[in-house]
Simulated assay, not measured.
Amino acid sequence: MAKDKQLQQLQSIEDKLRKLLAKHADAQQRLAKAQEEVKFLEALVEERDQEIKNFKNQENIVKIVETMAGNTANTTELKLKLNEYIREIDKCIAYLQD
């Protein structure tokens, strides 16, 4: 009789342990998925920050060009040339970061 009770307790403990192990495995999967999502979001934030920085640079360049150039034709040409230089510089920076 005592052995039956001990066997039942042991089986109960074993069942609880299996459930805990299953919960642990599930929690680890959710954690791994969350960590992947965090990495993705961090990369996205970094990309957006770079875009914002580029827009600010372009805005500053436009202001400089407008103050430097007197007529509209020269302003447009200068803007295009500066934007081309900026794109090339951005490519170089991205290449160096990799």
Rank of each mutant, 00 (worst) to 15 (best):
Q6I: 06
H24E: 10
L82D: 04
L21V: 02
K5D: 01
K16W: 05
Q29C: 08
A73H: 10
K39Q: 07
K91H: 06
G70T: 08
I13D: 13
K56M: 12
N54S: 13
V38A: 14
L82Y: 12
I61F: 09
I64T: 06
V65K: 06
K53A: 15
K56L: 13
T76C: 05
Q28I: 03
A43L: 03
Q28F: 04
E37A: 11
L10Y: 11
R87K: 14
E14Y: 13
K5C: 05
C92Y: 00
E66H: 02
C92N: 01
L31A: 09
H24K: 07
K91C: 02
A73M: 15
E66R: 08
N71G: 03
D15F: 01
Q6C: 01
E77A: 13
N74Q: 12
T67K: 00
K91L: 10
Q6R: 04
K56Y: 15
R30V: 04
D49A: 09
K5Y: 02
N54G: 07
A73K: 14
F55A: 15
E59S: 13
E84Y: 07
A69M: 11
N57K: 11
A69I: 06
E59M: 04
K33G: 09
E36K: 13
A43S: 08
K63L: 00
N74R: 13
A94I: 00
Q28K: 09
I93E: 02
R18C: 03
M68G: 00
K19P: 10
D49W: 03
L10N: 09
V45H: 14
I93L: 12
A69P: 02
K3Y: 08
Q11E: 08
K91N: 10
Q58M: 14
N74T: 15
E77L: 08
L7Y: 05
L31Q: 07
E77N: 13
F55I: 15
N57A: 11
Q50P: 00
E51N: 02
E51V: 00
A73V: 09
A94G: 00
A69R: 09
N57S: 11
N83D: 13
K53E: 11
S12G: 11
E36H: 15
D4F: 08
K39L: 12
I89G: 00
T76Y: 10
D15T: 07
K5M: 01
T67R: 00
N71L: 01
D4G: 01
L21W: 04
D4I: 03
E14L: 05
A69S: 12
D15L: 05
L82N: 05
F55R: 15
T75N: 15
K91I: 03
F40C: 03
R48L: 12
D90Y: 02
T67E: 05
I52Q: 10
R87T: 04
M68F: 00
K5I: 09
E46R: 11
A94Q: 00
D90Q: 15
L41N: 12
A22N: 08
N54E: 04
E84V: 01
E59T: 11
L17W: 10
K33S: 14
G70E: 06
E36S: 13
K91S: 06
Q35S: 01
I89Q: 12
K39P: 00
V38C: 03
T75F: 11
N71W: 03
Q11P: 00
R30H: 13
